[in-house]
Design a protein around this nucleic acid. Structure first.
Lengths: 236, 236
DNA sequence: GCAGAAACTATACGCCGTGAAGTTTAAATA
DNA sequence: TATTTAAACTTCACGGCGTATAGTTTCTGC
């Protein structure tokens, strides 16, 4: 029977890992487009069809890769967040943001895989099953907003955001972790998130390349501005 | 000789236009991935190779399409900008932003084509020759910043942005049109741009779908916040 | 030792971009 | 008008892709 630790099982796990690893290597060197079953198999000295023993379709493989890469991103920002003292929200938020940009610059193809059009023809699994890592990143963003909320609350004094009646999204999972965050706090979270994602996305996709101001400096300045505009004294 | 208006010339122009039109139709209905020479030719009752008489490669066609779509976007936001009175910068900026989001929502595939990974394997022409429309949109963003600058100037009091020594980007073309905009004004422009692009990009790519707050409302609120944070009294 | 499953290959189909060569058609020229 | 020429287009071919089907080898549990 299939007891754990059998030779068969071990080989299977190893081959699965190798497929993913080779795919990630191809992606890192030649972009998401290079993730093809035939190329992976070629690299491994196999036939493309052999991969079907490990992943039902190419899209399944891509979905797994997205999860994997997404997890790496989540780890990077979570680590940065945890490393900064909670007592200094400005510094903490900036640390998170720098980790996000830093990871994106170090893994531009991974960023494209997660946030852009990934592989040609790829269709995300429709179940709406967002990867665990998406939930983690979402939680991280909520944590940013939670840290900023006491300072920024006054900005949303006149707003009338409401919790939705039905809630099938990430929100319902993340919400319990931040009981003090009101509906307008989600708007705040998305504001921060949109801002950071926008800048990094423009940079990764080269739409900032034609601006000759250093993206690095611009980003730092934007962070300072962001933190200041939220009413938190900047120190980072 | 090939005088303009010859039958030959006319047919050529018409066929070229039809190729582009069919390609755009395919893109709008099935996404940028659907832009294939064979599909276009099939639709036109031709052979794929016939298209090579009009475009050197598929990437050439895609480049042309990007230009075309980009121009449509530029027209949309320019029209919106011109339609709002210069005397009310808050309203004007919001009108521009709403036009941007509105166009993106109406042409999501076009947005992906311009700002995302376009067609599988597509490589932008390396000459760095940004399309004219990119210049126009860039000018539009600069106009936003120019309108906001008098109000937002104080935010950049402590900054030391400098014009770069060498300037090969869009910046050098756009700068002369806004003589009153200092280097920090570019940072302001990119701040606004990053913010808007980030939100719209997240919405188009579905990363806001799992948030149950209405993207429409969120965007409106963000606009109000943005304008307010720039020190302009909101009226829009 | 042997049945059966798992891993893998071979073959094939239809899709793609594109190069080379051949054919039809329309314009230009003498 | 007859002939040359070039443009428009097709046909055939190659290598790439995902993947379905069927066949082959290899390992495992009884």
């Amino acid at each position: 029977m299939g007891s754990t630790g059998g030779r068969r099982e071990r080989l299977r796990v190893e081959t699965t890992a190798e497929i993913k690893q080779v795919a990630l290597k191809l992606m890192a060197s030649d972009g998401p487009d290079a993730i093809t079953l035939r190329a992976i198999a070629r690299e491994m000295g196999m036939t493309a069809n052999a991969i079907y023993g490990y992943f039902a379709t190419r899209d399944d493989l891509v979905t797994t890769l997205i999860n994997e890469v997404y997890t790496a991103l989540a780890n990077a920002v979570d680590t940065a967040w945890a490393s900064a003292p909670a007592a200094d929200p400005a510094h903490r938020i900036q640390t998170w943001a720098r980790a996000f940009r830093g990871w994106a610059l170090a893994n531009p193809q991974g960023f494209r895989l997660i946030y852009g059009d990934p592989v040609p023809g790829y269709q995300a699994p429709e179940g709406g099953a967002a990867p665990d890592a998406a939930y983690r990143v979402c939680t991280g963003i909520a944590a940013l907003a939670d840290a900023a909320w006491p300072h920024a609350e006054h900005l949303y004094a006149g707003s009338d955001f409401q919790w939705p009646d039905f809630d099938g999204g990430l929100l319902s999972k993340v919400r319990p972790a931040f009981p003090d965050l009101p509906p307008a706090g989600v708007a705040l979270a998305l504001r921060i998130w949109g801002h950071l994602h926008g800048l990094v996305s423009l940079e990764i996709y080269g739409h900032l390349r034609t601006q000759t101001i250093s993206p690095e400096k611009l980003f730092q300045e934007e962070l300072a501005q962001l933190v200041r505009s939220l009413g938190i004294t900047s120190e980072g």
